[in-house]
Design a protein around this nucleic acid. Structure first.
Lengths: 198, 198
DNA sequence: AGATATATTTTTACATTGTCAAGATTTAAT
DNA sequence: ATTAAATCTTGACAATGTAAAAATATATCT
């Protein structure tokens, strides 16, 4: 029972890690509903049943991939806020909003996995904590503007706005006659105005 | 039990209509991703390949079902606006917002089909016109508040808010410690405030 | 060390799914 | 009535996720 030296890799190496990487890679190259268990196994160079020992089901694998997505996501939001030109709470929140929209656009499949209803996805513990961390970040930024009493409702308002716009765009429901960038900025301003004038 | 029959033109009757009805029925009883072509055929009492002659693919069938969803949806919004206590533009818009949230909640699977990324869904002509009709309705309500110049951006703001909240709730991402009804009302108020103070 | 146990991967297999190609059968046309 | 067309069923195929059994590599123990 003496656990002596560092754990040596098994047959294939650290397959669990590679499966997660393959999942993220697949999300970058194909729509979310095409990211199947067998596709991920294929990319990792193993048989279609190999993941079974590391993830009890596809849903668990996707859950872990989504958790990683949330971590990247939270990092992007934090970086944007810290890089905001004027470091006022309003400026920081707007920066986060822009980063949010940019993330959803540049990581469409991952975003759809994280927020959509890809339906064999399991709410893994890692996923719960990672998504809660992202939410906390937004909550903090909003608290700096409206105070802690109204923070929850206000944060939900902010989140709904940017999430709603993101999903509408991703599903192609936004009439294309509206130029994208200007429109987003306009929406963020309304969102902020709603926060402050209520 | 098969005696007096009305004009039954074909083998089974008007199968196309029954398939659409079966699709809507299925959406009321199971999650959207379980609504398969074979499930719909089963409910209509025909073989799994029978739909082929009426719909070239599952995507087309789902598209038509979604179109019907949009028609019901637009009807609910219109009824709510016309039944608003105070018939001011603001009151009408708030009523529509509440109806929107209620529809998404009471018709979860249909809503997810209409707005989500159920991915073999085809943008059928009927679907395009029906969804555009719903959008026009919202646009009209918003125009009455902000004028036609800013209407498009404002309508997108409104839509994003209610759509974002709906999808967040449907995907179980709204922290449950917030009581639902009060929260929704709070969000609608912020949404309206953002419209007017910008 | 050699023997045995455990962990990992592959191979098969099965029930689903959507779509296609032939048949079969009912309705319409001539 | 015969023929043509439209409609439905049957059977097949390639995918999918999952499960069990077989194979293989690694770890543990004496």
């Amino acid at each position: 029972m003496t656990e002596s030296e560092s754990p040596k890799p098994y047959h294939h190496g650290h397959l669990r890690e590679q499966l997660l990487a393959a999942g993220e890679q697949a999300l970058g190259e194909m729509p979310v509903e095409q990211v199947s268990l067998r596709e991920i196994a294929r990319r990792a160079g193993v048989s279609h049943a190999a993941p079974k020992h590391h993830f009890p089901s596809l849903g668990h694998l996707l859950g872990e991939v989504a958790a990683r997505g949330y971590t990247r996501f939270a990092g992007a939001l934090a970086a944007a806020a810290d890089a905001a030109p004027d470091q006022s709470p309003q400026s920081r929140l707007l920066a986060m909003g822009r980063a949010y929209l940019r993330f959803a656009e540049s990581n469409a499949a991952a975003y759809q996995l994280m927020f959509g209803q890809r339906e064999p996805m399991v709410m893994t513990p890692n996923l719960i904590t990672a998504s809660y961390a992202a939410w906390s970040q937004l909550l903090e930024a909003v608290t700096a503007i409206v105070g802690s009493a109204r923070a929850q409702g206000a944060a939900l308002h902010v989140w709904s706005s940017v999430h709603g716009l993101s999903t509408l765009k991703l599903s192609g429901r936004v009439p294309p006659e509206m130029p994208g960038h200007n429109l987003e900025e306009q929406m963020l301003q309304m969102m902020l105005a709603g926060l402050e004038n209520q």
